[in-house]
Amino acid sequence: MKVGLFVTCLVDLSRPGIGFAALKLLEGAGCEVVVPETQTCCGQPGYNSGGREIAKALARKVLAEFRDCDYVVAPSGSCSGQMKVATVHDLFQGEPDLPEFEALAAKWYELSQFLVEVLKVDAVPGKFEGTVTYHDSCSGLRELGVKMQPRYLLQMAGAKIAEMEGAERCCGFGGTFSIKLGEISTRMCENKCESIRATGAGAIVGGDLGCLLNIEGRLRRTGDKETKVLHFAQVIAGEG
């Protein structure tokens, strides 16, 4: 089974360890993983800023890069939403290449969904002792239905999960929103951090690096140097 890893631009730039954790999990489960070198971004920043043509150009670029893969997997619900939902339901409606994007959408998976629903893993390499709390990022949850999969995997690694109040509420990241309307974004993030603190968990875990950088940035600014901020892939791959 040939699996293309869509690394995501944020992981590439900021936290390559998440990419390697995903790689380890997929290879460990017996996948042949390819990482097209020319990949950059799914185009969502352009799409959400009103740059429809930019988003379409980038989606076509991704399509070409992963054409010969049986599956494509991304350690992000947000980028996966862009490639599974936005392309098919909006960007390429009425375009001749819609069927190709439908095929891409059908073989594209968010990492936790791929591990649980396609590979049906029953063991993970990581061991985690302690309690974590899980933040459901918006696109993964509401566009793709990512909810129990990462929790299931975390528990497989031995983590205890303390659910926070409002786990499904937006952390305020929203891509460029976090800069354009930074003050509102910060307040939304502070609300999220309050919920996290109230659980007493030693780590906040999520599946989208954008949310995680946002949460980590706010926790550190408010003096919390202790709480770990981790992608679930790092935890279950034993790289956290």
């Binding site: 992981v11 730039l13 900021s14 990482v35 930074g182 003050e183 910060t186 706010r218």
Partner: peptide, 29 residues
């Protein structure tokens, strides 16, 4: 942790920007 970034003060006014690891996934891969 980056405490202030020109052009991105919308972010850094209320949050730190966690700094990248230093080398991109692409290079390491």
């Amino acid at each position: 942790l980056i405490h202030s970034l020109p052009g991105l003060d919308g972010w850094t006014k209320g949050r730190d920007m966690p700094a990248p690891a230093g080398r991109t996934f692409r290079e390491l891969y």
